[in-house]
Design a protein around this nucleic acid. Structure first.
Length: 196
DNA sequence: GGTAGGATAAGCT
DNA sequence: GCTTATCCTACCA
């Protein structure tokens, strides 16, 4: 499988978030291969989105990679202990991204289990911070290019998922915006979602 | 089955 | 001081 080209990400963030479901995220962090199929994403659509870190046009050192070119990683630290991975979208200097929220583990399960401290396989990658831990993603990958290097998203031509759309998880603003995209019926989601 | 509270740090008001 | 795009454990039913 080939990586998704940068132009895949240079589109409306909602479109990219929906289109990413079913593609394959691969990590070679630490020289060990782990990979999974993306089954859940959320769109954070830029300065007019109250739940986006760059709401109102905020731009600080921590947010710099959110303003980077489409097809790069924005990795941020939260709650004092967790990393979360986003794929930057749209255009350079426009702060929008897709949060990767859950994977179906495909490769490197033994590595994932070790990194995750022996939780059940169901929970290896079922949440944005969980999948970062399983794949070894940390702030060192903030700004990394997703077409080559240790973190890549590969084009899965065989993907055929029905998509369920719901409000985003864990946000306290714009709580009803339908910007979470899930593979319908997947058992690997961060939380069960009624299929439709 | 469910929910409440704690861990832990950066950034904002 | 308070909030945060979270997760885990403990406790109760």
């Amino acid at each position: 499988m080939k990586p998704l080209a940068a132009r895949f990400y240079a589109r409306d963030t909602k479109v990219v978030a929906r289109a990413l479901v079913g593609h394959i995220l691969v990590s070679d962090v630490g020289g060990r291969r782990t990979a999974g199929r993306i089954v859940e994403t959320e769109a954070y659509t830029g300065p007019r989105d109250p739940a986006c870190h760059a709401w109102g046009g905020r731009r600080t050192a921590r947010l710099e990679q959110l303003y980077g070119p489409p097809g790069t990683a924005y990795v941020y630290f939260t709650y004092g202990m967790h990393w979360c991975l986003n794929a930057v979208t749209e255009a350079v200097d426009y702060p929008a991204a897709v949060l990767i929220r859950a994977l179906e583990p495909l490769e490197g399960l033994a590595v994932m289990r070790r990194r995750r401290g022996g939780v059940s396989d169901r929970l290896l990658c079922a949440g944005p911070a969980r999948l970062c831990e399983a794949l070894g993603v940390t702030g060192r990958l903030d700004g990394a290019v997703l077409q080559r290097g240790v973190l890549r998203i590969l084009d899965n031509k065989a993907r055929r998922d029905r998509i369920v759309v719901t409000p985003r998880i864990g946000v306290s603003r714009a709580i009803d915006w339908p910007l979470r995209f899930c593979a319908a019926g997947s058992p690997w989601l961060s939380r069960p979602t009624a299929a439709r």
